[in-house]
Design a binder for these strands. Structure first.
Lengths: 345, 345
DNA sequence: AACCGTTAAGTTACCCGTAACATAAACGCG
DNA sequence: CGCGTTTATGTTACGGGTAACTTAACGGTT
């Protein structure tokens, strides 16, 4: 609050150097600790660093040319979905251990928001980008290709990624769930989810699901809540609508666990017993599912691990280590007890 | 992939200018659109911008001196706690509408992590900081004071903030809950929470809670899970330990809803009926609580709104609008049905 | 045609570090 | 003691924009 220096009242390296009676360059060497100075000088300089409360301006370092920033742009659809907040936690924790930071971008599941964010964040010269999803607008793809920085596309495993990819095969996970439900004897199956303008992982999952169910002689009735969030309430009302229009549904598969919770609540409210009267299956295996007295039938994905893997791939690439460009995190079906588990009842 | 320019293969303004046959300065003026050039020139320059795929380097602008960056450093204890991911969502969404970005820092509830992060993030010249909590290490406080940028301390309302503060009064919220439970006729009350090295909002809440209960003639038995996360499982085992050592507990107050869920699960597993045999109260009113058949007695705080308010205060300060330095978001007790609600039974 | 005001453009200097190069001081050794 | 070698320190230039200032071009008036 006292030392007004130049325009922004920040202490610069030259000021430290001047105070210590050495040149800027010598002070810089001391600060970086890469040798080429005497102990006496080191002490003098460090004394002034403490005295003046000098904080290096990393902008200048990056700006100077060859050095990279420690920003990693991370785009996430939304944090209301616990799945993504876990992914982000995995990413940021891991990046932190390497001294890097996440610059967050919430895209609200739209490619336009993503494009705008990419444009802005690239202007800050990030060291790399981690993006949720494999779909990007044409202009975004152009910018990404020209950016010349490492990019990890997460969530939806991508066999031909822009650069690197880590996640799971959503088609397969939907397929496995479909096969499991058919194996439990269900034929008339409903799906409750949300719908967005653009293709996304949930769509891919549904495709796999339908293929398995139809391949097994069953049929899928879809109930899509347009432009709503994939949360509890849409799950509740989606279930209501689905059952109102198709009375013979035996089992419902939901876009995610939160929506399945809503479905369970609806069934409870209407006196439908689960799984006796109707089967319920979610996706994602949220930790909070443990609150339920019955284990929810779901699909487990290690979201934290996914985030960590993304950060690891990024850091490996940044230190020029060899990186396998595609990494499958895998999933695991949780049989649970909200669908009947013997064939034909 | 074709045009290798200087060291980093990025297109610079000089290149655009040269290609357009004008000076750097003219190109700069066109890009900023603040006049002083002819239409013919504008077209020439913009054609080259598109042609070369030029993206401005905002680092240079900030670096040049007087302009601020659009980074806002945001420190959050952890994202496993749904409460904080909602706060972050509120912050980032609101910042986004102002063209600013969050640079995330997960402090894992430790002041040392926070200090390290502050040091790093300050070196990137952020426009401001949003920090969770009112407690900071001595060195962190020094750096923050000297940084000369707006700072919003959130979560724990602070009557003498470093700069600005928004949140709730945790002491009062604990006090209100204590008074409510005593009013329901409970006297022997347990508390299950976690314990950290440093004071935090949960501690403050417990202080208020104890004051109310003891003031009402009751007593509080504490069961602290040392250094554990405030989540479901510690809630379960904390309840087990508490009830094993103090058999006459009538009601348990938890650090948060997740822990209370664990407690509910434990009670269910042991055949204890809620609220007939024992009362259960949480804190935070998580959306997922709706999954329960009974409404959990809890304390509602609008986390999203809190985050938005923090971002709004930050942006107001950055545009030199007058800002009320302390803002109370308030809380609301949710009576629920996991405690008995008539006095004395 | 000489003059002046306005607009369009160019020049110079600077922000804060660091690479690259240059120099000075200290040291080792025959 | 002189010379080569190391070690310590200083000097210069630069990166990508922008503020401040200067110069050139244009348009209108008398």
């Amino acid at each position: 609050m006292d030392k007004k220096n130049n325009k922004n009242n920040k202490v610069s390296l030259s000021q430290v150097a001047e105070a210590a009676g050495v040149s800027k360059m010598t002070a810089s060497r001391v600060l970086r600790g890469e040798g080429g100075y005497s102990e006496k000088t080191r002490v003098k300089v460090m004394a002034q660093v403490d005295q003046l409360g000098y904080l290096p301006n990393r902008l200048a370092t990056v700006f100077a040319g060859d050095k990279n920033s420690t920003f990693i742009g991370v785009s996430i659809p939304d944090l209301g979905n616990e799945v993504f907040s876990q992914v982000l936690e995995g990413i940021d924790r891991k990046l932190g251990t390497f001294g890097h930071q996440s610059v967050l971008g919430l895209t609200q599941h739209t490619l336009q928001e993503e494009e705008d964010w990419i444009k802005t964040v690239l202007s800050w010269q990030p060291a790399g980008l981690i993006l949720t999803g494999r779909y990007h607008s044409a202009r975004a793809s152009d910018m990404l290709r020209n950016a010349g920085i490492p990019i990890v596309e997460i969530w939806d495993l991508n066999s031909s990624p822009l650069d690197m990819s880590v996640g799971i095969n959503h088609f397969d996970s939907g397929f496995d769930m479909g096969r499991y439900l058919v194996g439990c004897g269900y034929q008339k199956i409903g799906y409750v989810g949300t719908s967005h303008d653009t293709a996304n992982a949930a769509t891919t999952r549904l495709d796999g699901f339908c293929k398995a169910v139809e391949g097994g002689g069953g049929e899928v009735t879809r109930q899509l809540c347009l432009h709503d969030t994939a949360t509890y309430y849409p799950g509740y009302y989606g279930t209501e609508q689905l059952l109102a229009s198709s009375k013979d549904i035996e089992c419902i598969f939901y876009q995610n666990d939160s929506m399945a919770f809503g479905g369970l609540q609806y069934c409870g409210a209407k006196g439908l017993e689960v799984p006796k009267d109707i089967g319920i299956a979610g996706w994602g295996d949220l930790p909070v599912a443990s609150v339920l007295s019955k284990r929810l039938t779901s699909m487990h994905v290690s979201h934290l691990k996914l985030g960590q893997a993304a950060a690891e791939m990024m850091m490996a690439r940044l230190s020029d280590e060899p990186v396998e460009p595609c990494r499958d995190i895998g999933f695991r079906l949780i049989p649970g007890s909200t669908v009947r588990n013997t064939k034909g009842r």
